[in-house]
Design a protein around this nucleic acid. Sequence first.
DNA 1: AAGCCTATCAACCGCACACTC
DNA 2: GGAGTGTGCGGTTGATAGGCT
Length: 275
Amino acid sequence: MGRSPCCEKAHTNKGAWTKEEDQRLIAYIKAHGEGCWRSLPKAAGLLRCGKSCRLRWINYLRPDLKRGNFTEEEDELIIKLHAILGNKWSLIAGRLPGRTDNEIKNYWNTHIKRKLLGWGLDPQTHRPIGGSAAFPVASQQQQQQAECNNVLLPAQAPTFSCKATAADSADEGHSSGLVDDERYDVHGQELNLDLSISLPHHSLKPAIPTATTTAAAAAIGEESYMVTGAAGKGAICLCCQLGFQNSEACSCQAIQSPHVLFRYYRPEEEGGQGV
DNA sequence: AAGCCTATCAACCGCACACTC
DNA sequence: GGAGTGTGCGGTTGATAGGCT
């Protein structure tokens, strides 16, 4: 006959939390730890639904939360992770210490979405809207900084790509539905729509894992990222760079593409090679 | 000053998944 | 294997603050 409701709605408060409720929740979790959300409200003397308590704690009361504005680095990381993971806010949040999925989701919807639209990119697929891109021009200083950090800026002929089959995509809703080798010409330069993030073609420095690349790789767990240098020479599996040379995900020899600096590799059981 | 509009973000809701019995 | 339960996730809503006319 269906499941019982998570709480007795008639006797629970809704809406904004009061200071007193916050204090009760904090005190209870400090004393007993997280978990058992269903029984927590009663035990803590709160007239709230367990889910509501959990949400309040995770999104607002947790001591390790980082409040305040998102930094440029966080912006970039969110965009990159979203290109890989889609609307998997909790996974994205897992790579941004001190940030919550709800916070990132809100930030995406209010800021980044608009930013991408301004760049002429579809926020869902990260593809150019209408087949032509209108990337903003990054300042020389921004570009230099980005090159130092191996971060892609829009003006840098993005090999900014989103190839994804339904099976490949982190979630089907995010699938761009592109076919293999579908590419876009942006400002006279080839835009590879593979689901990967890379440095521009002209940047021939050996790639060094940055916080962003590392996080992006870690974001997909066991699957490995490839980081290659100039024209495909010196391909380095990110696993190796991270010190996981012997892990199953390590696949250093597998990639030689001159167009890809680091890209998403699928585990062997899913069909093996890069996408 | 008042009314309207927009942006922001905390919170809610419904669903899905994992686990237990 | 199926039902029940707990928990987590993502989409959406609603309250509120701030800006504009």
